[in-house]
Each structure stands twice: as structure tokens, then as C-alpha cells.
Design a protein around this nucleic acid. Structure first.
Lengths: 181, 181
DNA sequence: GCCACCTATGCAACTTGTTGCACTGCACGC
DNA sequence: GCGTGCAGTGCAACAAGTTGCATAGGTGGC
């Protein structure tokens, strides 16, 4: 599984606590890898046992103590190994497609609403990604290294969301057209 | 979870055994919902207990007996309920993006190979989908009902794979360009 | 005659991911 | 002074997905 690797990548960019990692997964990392704080805490614990990261407690005043984690050499080695190892393309699980395929067994109007709702959600996400791109990567052609890689991943999110919005639109036109007949 | 619903949709299109369902999930249904035979057998068992499907054994000569399942009224009701209920957009888990984002921690050439490999896999899938479209849906504008829904889902697969191929190409150009500097 | 592969179902063990809850303490609005 | 929300960590139970194996007869190649 790649959650460990996603955490390694994130910790390598900047060390942090489980809580901070969870926040990053809600925003930037979460654009391409979802994880809850529960998963992150459990995985960090295992990674310490494996020697991939080291953790030390940091006292804070006014706030609870936190444990800050850093990538260890063994973690960097594991990441390098994994980066070079071939992986399977993702297994797809797309609820909305199941719903569209089963459309004739339910209420057509309700399905149209559901597709329209997803269309708007994806359009919103697309806007967020485009705003991030404009703000953080104003001159893409000048990028290199880490910043380039971050931008490329964002580009993937943009392409994926755009494709989804367009697909939803295609579905909506077709379903409404079919309804009228 | 939607595996049950994907099975209901598939069984509604045509009754079949667990084994047959597993085959369908390898091809058409698997285009948007992956499942192994283990999951399918287990889920079918649960669905019988819930009264969503009925199963009866069918003796075959030369081959092992099979259990053929059919959708029951309660199953159709559940499917209708689920179709009208709002769902979350998919949680994304994209290995390759994690790899790209962590690129600076591994061998650049190995990552380029990995991205190129995925590019070819997605291009292959795209070709398969396009071939299916040409063969099974030669006149898309004339479609309605169930056939229309099947075609729309296929369109989603085509859009998704095309977006992935194009993203891989963008990544390859950028990584190679960056390497040269 | 043996090996490999297909049809067909399923158990058991394991890994992952989800959900609900528990505990602490500060800040802020009303 | 009370509820809400944020920061922070974590257990426990459950649901879902994966992997390895077992069983059993039939087909087809060498």
C-alpha cells in the first residue's frame, strides 16, 4: 500500500505531527491520496517500529503536546525502492457510474439530480485546483525539481476533475434528452 | 458500499452465477468497478440472507454445478433507494501521483520508465474501450434506456483513460526536459 | 500419461479503511 | 458560565478488500 509512501513524501517535504499530516491530507496531499487521522496515527506507529521514521515529543504551551516525526534513512531507502518498483494501475470504483448504468431501475429525475450534484462538486474542486495553480505556480515553464513535481501532480488533478465535469455534462444532456422521449 | 449495487445492476441485466459475475467484472463492469471472485461470492451470500437476490443450484454435465442468482423484489427496491440517495464523490488514491510527487527522492530514469509504462497501459485500455464503442454502439445518437446508460458509462471510461494518457505524456515531457538541465 | 488451463465454489487469515468514541485544554462568542 | 470549535492523540470494533489455498472434474496439447 502507498499510504506509508505518501506519508514519507509529505514528511520529507516537511517534518510534522500526525495531526499536521492529517491536515495536509485534507488539502494538498488529499488531492490525490485520501486518509483519515486514524489511519495516519496507526501507520506512523507502524513506521516507527519499522525504523522508517523517528518521532519525538514536543511540549507546547497552551496546547497539548505533539509528536513530531521525521524521515529516517531507512525510510528514504524504502521510498527510493518503491519509486523504482512497478505498480498496478488503480482499481477503479466509481459509484456514479454504477448508478448511471442502473438508471432504468430507479427514478430518472432523482438520478439527474444526483449527477448534477456531482457535476457541481467536481466543478468546485476544479476551481480550487485552478486557483492553487494560479497562486502557487504562476510561471510553470520555469519550474524544476520538487516544485515541478508538485505542479505535475496538480495538473493531474485538474485533468481528472475537468474530465469528470465534462462527463457529467454529457450524461445530463443525454438523460434529459432521453426523458423527453 | 456499492459492490452489492453493482452486482444488482449486473444481475438485473442478466441472471448468472458467481463465476459468471466475476467474469463480467473482469470485463465490462470492471471498467468502472473492480471486484475479485472472493468478494463476489461473499457478497452474494450476504445478499441472499438480506433477501435481495434468490439463488438456485443448476446441475451441468461435464462441469461442476453452479448457483444462478436472480434479483428479488427487495433487491430492486434497495437499488431504487440507493440510486436516489446522495453519494460522496470517490476518494482518490493514485499511486502514480505519489511517485511523481516524491520523484526527487529516487532515480529519475526509473520514474520516467514507470510513468511511460502506465501511459502505455492506459493507452491500451483506451483502445479497448474505443473498440467496444465502435462495435457495440455504432450509432450513439439513436440510443435510449438501458443501452444509452451502458454507452454513457463507457464514455466515462474513455474520458478517464484519455485524460490519464494525456497527463502521463505531460509528465514525461516535463521530467525529461527537467533531466536535461 | 502428465501438465496446464478452464469452470465452479468456497474457507481462512490477513491487511486496509471506516466509524464512533474518549480525553485534555484553550479561545471565542453570547 | 455555556456551547462551539480547534488542536492533539489514541483505542476498539467493525466493514471491506486481498491473498493463498483447497477441491473437483473436463479439455487439450505434447
Amino acid at each position: 500500500m502507498a499510504l506509508e509512501h505518501a506519508i514519507l513524501v509529505s514528511l520529507d517535504e516537511r517534518s510534522g505531527s500526525g495531526y499536521e499530516l492529517a491536515r495536509r491530507f485534507e488539502k494538498s496531499i488529499g488531492f490525490f491520496w485520501a486518509a483519515t487521522h486514524q489511519q495516519i496515527y496507526r501507520t506512523l506507529k507502524r513506521m516507527v517500529e519499522l525504523g522508517w521514521v523517528t518521532g519525538h515529543e514536543v511540549a507546547q504551551d497552551g496546547r497539548p503536546d505533539k509528536k513530531v516525526y521525521e524521515v529516517a534513512d531507512a525510510g528514504r531507502a524504502e521510498l527510493a525502492r518503491w519509486l523504482a518498483s512497478p505498480g498496478e494501475p488503480e482499481t477503479i470504483r466509481h459509484d456514479l457510474s454504477v448508478k448511471v448504468r442502473g438508471a432504468s431501475l430507479g427514478d430518472p429525475a432523482a438520478l439527474v439530480d444526483e449527477v448534477a450534484r456531482h457535476r457541481d462538486l467536481h466543478a468546485e474542486r476544479l476551481d480550487v485546483y485552478l486557483a492553487v495553480e494560479k497562486k502557487d505556480f504562476p510561471d510553470p515553464s520555469a519550474l524544476s525539481g520538487r516544485r515541478l513535481h508538485q505542479h505535475l501532480v496538480l495538473r493531474g488533478g485538474i485533468r481528472a476533475e475537468r474530465a469528470l465535469v465534462e462527463w457529467c455534462d454529457e450524461v445530463l444532456v443525454a438523460l434529459r434528452e432521453d426523458d423527453r422521449r
